Simulated scan of single mutants.
Amino acid sequence: MANRSSDIIAALTKGLRVIEAFDAHHPRLSVSEAAARTGLDRATARRCLLTLVAEGYALHDGKYFTLTPRVLRLGMAALATLPLAQIVQPWLDQLSERVGQSASVAIRDETEIVYLARAAQRRVMSIGLMPGSRLPAHCTSLGRVLLAALPEPQARAIVERSDLAPRTALSLTDPEEIMARIAAAREEGHAIIDQEVEIGLCSIAVPLLDSRGRTVAALNLGMAATQDRAAAMVGRYLPEMRRVQAGLARVIG
């Protein structure tokens, strides 16, 4: 049943837009900046920001607003209700222990991936990854596997509206090169990233399928680039990942 306009709470919609205006590149926003990023007028943006402060979701230093960790409750509560995260966690824990590397499961949200579950052996990235963390889809092994599950025109449209600014000197920035890697992932059933996200980090990913063969998420292993060059990762880790892939296909609805 379609939502009637009378069912929509406009103030809540505006407040959510203000929360989404904050990101890694905009951790602090003034009223003017929040208005510009949301398309709201200054007065509405200001009321939304002050409401977030009053409810403990933001801080205000007199000019700039910043979100507080309380905002994480919103995302973590949503993730916690997803059965998939609960299903995959023990499989991740056991896989990570067997191979001695960090394992993660993620889904795609527009041009980004969102981590649902993670089992970390050691920290190999400068940023700490946890459920709810986001990275660009086009330059991650998880993201390329998820994009490979889409029809080529849809995957291309997502790549073309992504921020392709290089994260390292090895990052691919040409949409055609990225699409070629996505096509390879579609053909081979896995994707490998060699230091495109961060120097010193390699990863390999496979799709996670439901009982009908549809890709619902992606699984990866991440490791230091000095441990295993990309060419060696397939033989060493892919068989274990395939076993987890097959096991989860039997239990994912």
Rank of each mutant, 00 (worst) to 15 (best):
162 S>G: 13
227 Q>N: 13
66 T>I: 12
34 A>R: 13
232 A>H: 13
78 A>R: 07
25 H>Y: 11
7 D>R: 07
22 F>R: 02
52 L>Y: 11
77 A>P: 09
133 S>N: 07
80 A>S: 07
181 R>H: 03
97 E>S: 11
28 R>N: 11
98 R>L: 07
71 V>G: 03
219 L>C: 04
77 A>G: 15
143 G>K: 00
5 S>G: 01
251 V>I: 15
117 A>I: 04
187 E>G: 02
100 G>V: 00
28 R>I: 04
182 I>W: 05
100 G>N: 00
205 A>M: 01
128 G>E: 12
165 A>S: 15
101 Q>D: 00
10 A>F: 08
195 Q>P: 00
36 A>W: 11
50 L>C: 07
239 P>E: 13
109 D>I: 13
241 M>L: 09
217 A>H: 12
10 A>K: 12
119 A>R: 10
33 E>Y: 08
236 R>F: 10
17 R>A: 15
136 P>R: 06
104 S>D: 04
153 P>A: 07
220 N>M: 03
231 A>V: 15
3 N>D: 07
111 T>F: 02
98 R>G: 00
11 A>P: 09
6 S>L: 10
214 R>K: 11
70 R>I: 03
225 A>E: 09
173 T>Y: 09
47 R>Y: 06
249 A>H: 13
134 R>W: 06
163 D>S: 11
33 E>A: 14
71 V>A: 01
71 V>H: 02
99 V>E: 08
154 Q>V: 15
141 S>D: 05
154 Q>C: 04
8 I>S: 00
106 A>E: 15
113 I>W: 05
196 E>H: 01
224 A>F: 15
155 A>H: 00
22 F>I: 04
53 V>E: 08
248 L>M: 08
170 L>C: 14
171 S>M: 12
244 V>F: 14
186 R>P: 08
176 E>S: 10
71 V>L: 00
182 I>E: 01
88 V>Q: 09
69 P>T: 03
65 F>Q: 09
61 D>H: 03
225 A>D: 12
179 M>R: 04
141 S>G: 03
3 N>L: 15
242 R>S: 02
73 R>L: 14
172 L>I: 12
72 L>Y: 14
58 A>F: 02
5 S>F: 05
138 H>W: 11
96 S>L: 04
116 L>N: 01
112 E>L: 06
123 R>H: 13
237 Y>S: 05
225 A>M: 09
84 L>I: 12
19 I>E: 03
32 S>L: 13
32 S>R: 11
81 T>K: 13
164 L>G: 07
138 H>P: 06
128 G>W: 07
232 A>W: 04
85 A>Y: 02
208 L>Y: 11
131 P>L: 08
101 Q>K: 14
200 G>Y: 12
22 F>M: 07
122 R>E: 15
200 G>E: 05
179 M>H: 05
152 E>H: 10
118 R>K: 05
209 L>S: 05
83 P>K: 06
165 A>P: 01
188 E>C: 01
137 A>W: 01
157 A>F: 09
166 P>C: 10
43 A>V: 14
22 F>P: 07
216 V>D: 02
194 D>A: 15
95 L>R: 00
222 G>Q: 14
31 V>H: 12
